[in-house]
Amino acid sequence: MARPRRIVLIRHGESEGNIDDTVYEREPDHALSLTPTGLLQAEVAGARMRALFGDERVSAYVSPYRRTHQTFQALGLDPSRVRVREEPRLREQDWGNWQDRDDVRRQKAYRDAYGHFFYRFAQGESGADVYDRVGSFLESLWRSFEDPGHPPNVLIITHGLTMRLFCTRWFHWTVAEFESLSNPGNAVSRELLLGADGRYSLDRPFEHWCTPESYGATG
């Protein structure tokens, strides 16, 4: 099994929806583009990625959303060294279709009170649904490591909540731990690094907005 030395997760750059939530009434979430600031963020991240990967090969997976594809393109990686695949299981949490701004704001407030993992948007998904499809992707990813020629680097371009749930699933964090984590900023990355003991560790922790709640023993 050729496990990669590093797995890099990166959130898309700033999108139109990050600065104006009324856009969801006119444009589908998956079709939103990067802002000029988001494009610059992705280009800056690209300089870091190119320095990180050097001349090594990369296996890249990109959420099917326009803003994640634009982020990947703006990274400016050498196409001769990158094998890229679109991966729908890495998409953003589904909120529904064209959305009423006030209704979405109400539901987000409900989600904050109810919990991001269990709250289900009326026409979309819960965090638990995203967790399940991320788990399905991880099974496919692990099977890809069976190829002895697998690249030494994996790059995943996705969304903030999906990044947190990817790490929750990978490291077997509790739901309470997930709930305490903040999303990374736009075009901010995290790395899973393979250690000498064969285990992966996170290069730096996610920021916490609260202390994880402890439920005690369960039976």
Rank of each mutant, 00 (worst) to 15 (best):
M1I: 05
R3M: 14
I10Y: 06
G13Y: 03
E14R: 04
N18K: 11
I19A: 13
D20W: 05
D21L: 08
Y24N: 03
Y24R: 05
R26P: 00
E27T: 14
L34D: 02
V44G: 12
A47H: 06
A47F: 01
F53M: 09
V58K: 05
Y65P: 00
Q73E: 15
A74I: 10
A74V: 01
G76S: 10
P79E: 06
R83F: 08
V84T: 13
V84N: 09
R85A: 15
E87Q: 14
R89P: 00
L90M: 13
G96M: 08
D100T: 08
D103Y: 01
R105C: 08
R106V: 09
A109I: 11
R111M: 13
D112Y: 10
Y114D: 14
F117W: 13
F118T: 07
A128Q: 04
V134N: 08
G135E: 00
L138T: 00
R143S: 15
S144P: 09
E146H: 07
P148H: 14
P151T: 05
P151V: 05
P152N: 15
V154D: 09
T158M: 09
G160S: 00
T162Y: 10
F166M: 06
C167R: 04
C167G: 02
C167E: 12
T168N: 03
H172V: 02
H172R: 12
H172F: 03
T174K: 05
T174G: 08
F178N: 13
S180Q: 07
L181A: 10
L181H: 07
S189C: 09
R190L: 02
E191H: 10
L193R: 12
L194V: 11
G195L: 12
Y200D: 10
L202W: 06
D203K: 00
P205S: 12
W209I: 06
T211I: 15
E213F: 04
E213L: 06
T218I: 10
T218W: 07
